[in-house]
């Protein structure tokens, strides 16, 4: 178990290196590089060259990456080439917003997805079919479209909740809650349906397992069977899908933050992309990669707890 966690942490380091390196290497192919972006299309070549020199763009790629890495290890991710703001501090202010969106969405996907999937596998019939239809919609409709629909229906028509904007928790917990309700729903819908579908499939499979038949035949009651044996044995694939859903939500958050104009990492990254602002992209990359590592670690721990072979080893 501890070895497993250690192993995961060990593979996380190359992961961080790879993600940042990919962005760095791609940068080498930049047609419109940062200097030109800052100075505009019509800048004279000398000025561009001077700025390139100043930004260190003429150094070889490897030494630039080394410099960046050395800085990153000391908590310095550089500055935005557009605004000149320290990347670390802008990540710092925006992380809270994104986490306010991600954490409740992941929890909602897990709880609602497992509950719905379990209910539909055990009860079947009408509930099963309703879940089927909702799953199809959740699968098919893009999250940003659902977000817009929610805005149209609940915010603009019914005026129940704010359509856009974000209130920090520290400022007003009530407003914070109101500001994240719609984004969380829009972001979770896909996750809920994915988790529900996986739960339903694996519960249905376990329900026909020999040991369920055996325990039932020898007098173990339905409640105990479902809550102890079925849920427990169906859990591993569900946990896997939860992991995938959570990682997918990092992408989803980028779209959702844009719809609801939330000042999170997603909107930051989108703007940076439009501005060719590589240091900012790298910074967001580091944060999101760390998020993936945390999710994977949690999943590994869950596997360890669920699988006696891992625990016994």
């Amino acid at each position: 178990m501890l070895r497993l966690i250690g192993n995961r942490i060990a593979t996380s380091i190359p992961l961080l290196l790879i993600v940042t390196l990919i962005v760095f290497v791609l940068q080498a192919f930049v047609p419109g590089d940062a200097a030109r972006t800052i100075l505009g299309e019509n800048a004279n070549p000398q000025t561009v060259a001077a700025l390139r020199e100043q930004l260190g763009l003429n150094e070889p790629l490897v030494s630039r990456y080394g410099d960046w890495l050395a800085g990153a290890l000391h908590g310095d991710l550089g500055t935005s080439i557009i605004s000149g703001v320290d990347v670390m501090s802008s990540l710092d202010t925006r992380l809270g917003v994104t986490l306010s969106l991600l954490v409740p969405s992941m929890l909602l996907s897990a709880v609602a997805g497992i509950a719905l999937g379990f209910a539909s596998a055990v009860r079947g019939g009408f509930l099963g079919r309703v879940i089927d239809v909702v799953s199809l919609l959740g699968f098919a409709l893009p999250s940003f479209w659902i977000a817009l629909l929610l805005v149209a229906a609940l915010a603009e028509r019914a005026n129940l909740l704010p359509a856009t904007g974000y209130t920090p928790f520290a400022e007003s917990p009530g407003d914070w809650l109101r500001s994240i309700v719609l984004p969380v729903i829009a972001l979770s819908l896909h996750g809920i349906t994915a988790v529900a579908k996986q739960t339903r499939d694996s519960v249905a499979e376990v329900l026909e397992a020999d040991y369920v038949r055996f325990l039932r035949a020898n007098g173990v009651g339905t409640t105990s069977l479902l809550l102890r044996h079925v849920l427990r044995n169906a859990a591993i694939p569900v946990v896997t899908s939860l992991g995938l859903v959570s990682i997918g939500m990092l992408s989803g958050a980028v779209f959702i933050e844009n719809v609801f104009v939330l000042p999170g990492l997603g909107t930051l990254a989108t703007q940076a992309t439009l501005d060719h602002d590589v240091p900012v992209i790298l910074g967001v990359g580091v944060v999101l990669t760390l998020a993936v590592i945390v999710v994977n670690l949690l999943i590994d721990i869950a596997y360890g707890l669920l699988n006696p072979k891992v625990r016994a080893a």
């Binding site: 962005v23 791609l26 992309t273 060719h276 990359g285 993936v292």
Partner: peptide, 19 residues
Amino acid sequence: IVMSVPTIVILLGVLTIFD
């Protein structure tokens, strides 16, 4: 490792660079 890469970051990176 690749499966743990946050896809969106790489996509945004690519879009930054390949305009």
